[in-house]
Write a protein that binds this DNA or RNA. Sequence first.
DNA 1: CGTGGCATGTAATCGGTTACATGATTTA
DNA 2: TAAATCATGTAACCGATTACATGCCACG
Lengths: 192, 192
Amino acid sequence: MSLRFGILGLLNYSSMTGYDLKKVFDASIDFFWHAQTSQIYRELNVMEEEGWLISHVEIQTDKPNKRIYEITDKGREALMEWIASAPKEDRRPKLPTLMRMFFAGERSVEENIAFFEDYIKRSQAWLDKMDKIDLDLKYYTDRFSGSPRPLYWEMTLDYGIQLMQMNRDWAKKNIEILKKLPAAKDKAEATD
Amino acid sequence: MSLRFGILGLLNYSSMTGYDLKKVFDASIDFFWHAQTSQIYRELNVMEEEGWLISHVEIQTDKPNKRIYEITDKGREALMEWIASAPKEDRRPKLPTLMRMFFAGERSVEENIAFFEDYIKRSQAWLDKMDKIDLDLKYYTDRFSGSPRPLYWEMTLDYGIQLMQMNRDWAKKNIEILKKLPAAKDKAEATD
DNA sequence: CGTGGCATGTAATCGGTTACATGATTTA
DNA sequence: TAAATCATGTAACCGATTACATGCCACG
């Protein structure tokens, strides 16, 4: 459901095409909700059928024509209802990495250290991307000053940054633990 | 895929029924991977067809009969392959709460404070549950001493606790921010 | 006499992923 | 001349959720 209302929420800020939506998702929302292009177009169709959106085609000569979606009153109503609705007891996100960790005892200590090292790299890559998201949001923030939106956007970004930092630090700590194990001691000192 | 191998991993520790698996999931794995009963039984069927498991029925007089699943060599192979396989670039978990936050500017500050207060309660409930999981894992730890399993189990639990604490603290901080807003000041002081 | 535990499933639906398809224009 | 950008989709599949179905036994 969240994707549906994510799209609707963006269209409430401004009318745009499926392609535009995908770009906004990738630039600002990706870290908490990754959306496939195919899924965006499908949701747009469904919502138009339900009367939450209307669209028109803009003919372009130099580029492919594009279909611009606009939110309707009915759509705005549905959006507000979703925003007001209580999040029925938080569904815990599924964390595949922890599933792996749970059974990591079947793997060698060295392999697990390598796993965590890779994990740190990926966390860091996300943290780097967060800086870009920050800039993107600041771009909109300038255009929305006085509105409470930027404040809440900052809160989501803040969460994302904290999460990635936590991920990174957790992996670092685990490497320390593994390197202190008697069996891994030799290798640990060699690569240190 | 993770659910499949989660089940397989547990059966690698010890043979059990679908019902038992559900209990282990709810008691220890739930915080990073919630599994439905229906899904567990379906996966068991599929894996038995693939020859990863074999089962036999144990007849009970006082209770319903039960079907006990046992991992095969082929299943053990598949499990080890999964454990060794590289996690293809971390798919970011979807975080519905952040989607809500992203559009929370459409809601009143008071409503958002109430939302965060509820969120803190739910995080705290999870933290309380973590204590129970800790005990459950310690129970197994005693039976596996010398094995590296408990070490990795602790790492997953540690992650879970840190995550819930982070969630809680994030919400607390956000409430502070919202209460300092000029528009919310009166109400904030009244309910303090 | 009702509730909770034991125990196993089926069916329908939904949301998300992967793969595929097309084709023009702009930029390096 | 190759790659990236613009732009819109379809089809198949897969994994997860929700609802439903059954029935006995033990305990308070």
